[in-house]
Amino acid sequence: MPLALDVSDLELRFGGLTALSGVSLQVQQGHIASLIGPNGAGKTSLVNCVTGYYRPTSGRISCYGTDVTGSSPHKAVAAGMARTYQNIELFKGMSVLDNLLLGRHRHLRSGLISGGLYYGRARREELAARAAVEHLIDFLEIAHVRRTPVGLLPYGLQKRVELGRALAVEPRLLLLDEPMAGMNLEEKQDMARFILETREERGVTVLLIEHDMGVVMDISDHVVALEFGRVIGAGTAEQVAQDPRVIAAYLGGQRAEGDGETGASLVGAPQGAPS
């Protein structure tokens, strides 16, 4: 069984700046893997490499056994990926419906001629896509805003629509770039539930970038920590949370200098509480 995502020895340089160096990570099929690390660690750069937005300087990336190194974003989608963005990149002038329908793009076939005739298969597939999208709308509980231009929606709902658009792609690997940033506790819980249900019901593998350690500890099967473009720790949530290098990266170098018994913990607060 191939890995859902296999990144090996990835390096990304922008001129003299090394954003990623020697990064390797493996995500098992059906897992929820989290990518953590301080700001500027290279988490989003890594996701951008995987989804074809950045072309890595060297290294290999494969998704479900398909080599996607240095491909373009639409080819990454064809390989079975879908993603959300740190700073919501929705089609702001379009309704929620149209945004989700665009997610269905690769499942539809009509082109310049059949689309212009809107007859037969083109018409049937449009209606089928609409039905599929309505299921997602139900799942994400956004039925009341389906006609609203997404630019007018509150932030939390926009994040949810963006998740919906990624799910409409029907990916095998879903990459979520800080889906809970800036949300309140309730919204975070909703989002965590959507992510878990997505994994359970659709068997989608998830790679999650998230800063809320409570959420990461709760829902991740596997955690990878980055700092300054390098992997500084990987394993289960508990292992990573105990890792002195990870603690040092988050809490500063001196406290974790000796060993892991300084009492420092990444999850001091009760899990799920607002931090």
Binding site: S72, P73, E89, H105
Partner: peptide, 9 residues
Amino acid sequence: LAAEGVGIN
């Protein structure tokens, strides 16, 4: 950019 991200060339 997002158009590319849903598989549009």
